[in-house]
Amino acid sequence: MTSDSALPGHTPVPVPAPWQLLEDASTVLAVHAHPDDESLSTGALLTSLVAAGTRVVLVTATRGEEGEIVPGSIPAQETRPLEEIREAEIDAATSALGIAERHWLGTAPALAPGAAPRRYRDSGMRWVREGLAGPSDSAGADSFSLRPLEDAVDDLVALLAHVRPDAVIGYDDEGTYGHPDHVRAHHVAVGACARTGVPLVEIASGGSTDPHIQWREHPGTAEAVHRAVDSYRTQLTVRDTSAEGIAIRHVGGQDDLVALRTGLHVRP
């Protein structure tokens, strides 16, 4: 990969490999779609960066309003709407991971100058086939995946100017499992990084045999990731913790493993 390769008269400058970018960064910004994504997709990575002294900032696009709810996870006497409950969950999760600074996309400072605050709603999802998600049939015009892409890019650019990260962490173009909000978050991160020149480090969706994925283990992160994941009791149930990761069951009944290692996608 190179930078400035499209500028006439400029000699392409090598871009460091993604793990080197993160090792050298003093500040990183992680871009996620919903509360819980930061813990499920990048919990071990983010807590290891924090432990290494890196300033880790999180921005989340939606409040997860369309998520299903684990039966019995919300007391009968609870009066808060789901989005407020999920805000409390993400506060607990980020605290467990050691993240001290987080933002909502569309709320200052993650808001384009002069724009009125905007709220990106969870798009929901449906399973197209096993392991692949698609957009919900009921997603409205205010959903993250259907609102104008440039609005979200403008908002993320504003946050980049405020945070001034050395690298952005985001999804690759598959968006982990194809959730429309994850895919949109990828395109938003790509657009904002292209405009500002901040390098984008992509969390790989592919399997361990893909030669374009570089994997690293994150020893010593199991306790923090367990506590973070367990904060999302409306969305999942923690079943076990082992050296490989945190075994969970999603609200829809799917068993999954929150791995204590991360693959970063290296573009050929």
Rank of each mutant, 00 (worst) to 15 (best):
L160Y: 13
W215R: 08
R164S: 15
L160M: 15
S208V: 15
P165V: 11
H187V: 09
A189P: 06
A204S: 14
W215I: 01
S205A: 09
A161S: 14
G220A: 05
P219F: 07
L160E: 08
A192V: 12
R184M: 14
I169Q: 08
P199R: 07
D172M: 04
V183G: 06
L160S: 08
E217G: 13
G206T: 15
H187C: 05
H179F: 09
H179E: 06
V183T: 13
T176D: 14
P165S: 09
I213G: 02
V188T: 14
G175Q: 03
D210L: 00
T176N: 10
H212R: 00
L200H: 04
D172G: 03
E174N: 12
L200F: 10
V168Y: 10
H182S: 11
G220E: 01
Y177N: 13
V163F: 13
H162F: 15
V190A: 11
G170M: 09
Y177M: 03
A161P: 03
G206H: 01
Q214W: 12
I213S: 00
G207I: 02
A161G: 15
E202V: 04
G206K: 00
P199V: 13
A194Y: 08
H162Q: 13
R195P: 06
V198H: 02
A189M: 04
A167T: 13
G197T: 06
G220N: 03
S208H: 13
G220L: 04
V188P: 10
G175S: 02
H182R: 08
T196R: 00
G197W: 04
G207W: 02
E202Q: 11
H187I: 03
W215G: 03
H182L: 09
W215K: 02
P165Y: 07
P180Q: 05
H212C: 06
A192H: 07
G191K: 04
P180V: 10
V183R: 13
S205R: 00
P211C: 06
G206M: 07
P180A: 06
V201W: 05
I213R: 09
H162S: 15
V201P: 05
G178S: 06
G207R: 03
P199G: 07
D210K: 03
H218F: 10
G178K: 08
I169N: 04
C193S: 12
E217F: 00
C193E: 12
T209G: 04
A194G: 14
S208K: 04
T209S: 14
G178N: 09
W215H: 12
H179M: 07
H182Y: 11
V190T: 13
V163S: 10
V188N: 07
G220S: 02
D210Q: 00
A194H: 10
R164I: 12
T209A: 14
E174D: 14
P219C: 08
W215C: 01
H218G: 02
Y171Q: 08
A189L: 05
G191D: 12
A189D: 07
L160I: 15
H218A: 01
A161I: 04
A194P: 01
P180C: 05
V201L: 02
G207V: 07
V168N: 10
D181V: 09
R195K: 10
Y177H: 12
H186D: 02
G207N: 07
G178W: 12
P165W: 08
P211H: 00
T196Y: 05
I169P: 00
T209C: 03
